[in-house]
């Protein structure tokens, strides 16, 4: 009888060990997925802000600058995790006096593995470019 007990205790032991281990392993793996998403979408947002600022800087006035920035965002190929890219009014600051344009973008991202209280992230990126769309002063 002791042999059968020992055999039953041994059978399934590994499974239990794996399950216990998985309790640590799985969250780390899932968190790393979220971390990768956060890092990549943050870089994506930075690039997009730079592109929008560059497009705005090639214009001659504030109205066209905003339109150019918005067009850059509209042409952005959305990733499935990106919920929204927002360019609020006033976030394209075309400063003709100082010769620069500042663009501020907000990107809302849905994390692929939502955790309680941590299911999305919002990034803000700001890029400043010199205005090259206007001719040199007379």
């Amino acid at each position: 009888m002791s042999r059968r007990t020992t055999s039953r205790n041994f059978t399934g032991g590994s499974l239990i060990e794996v399950l216990c281990g998985a309790m640590f392993f799985l969250p780390i793996a899932l968190l790393s997925l979220d971390l990768i998403t956060v890092v990549l979408t943050n870089q994506m947002n930075d690039h997009l802000a730079k592109d929008a600022a560059r497009a705005a800087a090639n214009q001659q006035d504030a109205v066209h600058a905003r339109l150019a920035a918005q067009k850059t965002i509209d042409n952005f190929l959305n990733s499935p995790v990106v919920r929204k890219v927002e360019l609020k009014p006033g976030n394209v600051n075309f400063d003709g006096v100082n010769g620069q344009v500042a663009v501020e973008l907000s990107m809302s991202v849905a994390l692929p593995v939502p955790f309680p209280g941590f299911d999305s992230a919002k990034f803000t990126a700001r890029s400043i470019e010199p205005i090259v769309g206007t001719p040199a002063a007379l």
Binding site: E17, V18, C20, G21, A22, F24, F25, I28, S32
Partner: peptide
């Protein structure tokens, strides 16, 4: 306990 220690190590490595 061999598997669990392996899992822990792998988790740390990961």
């Amino acid at each position: 306990g061999a598997t669990i220690s392996l899992v822990v190590v792998c988790s740390l490595v990961m």
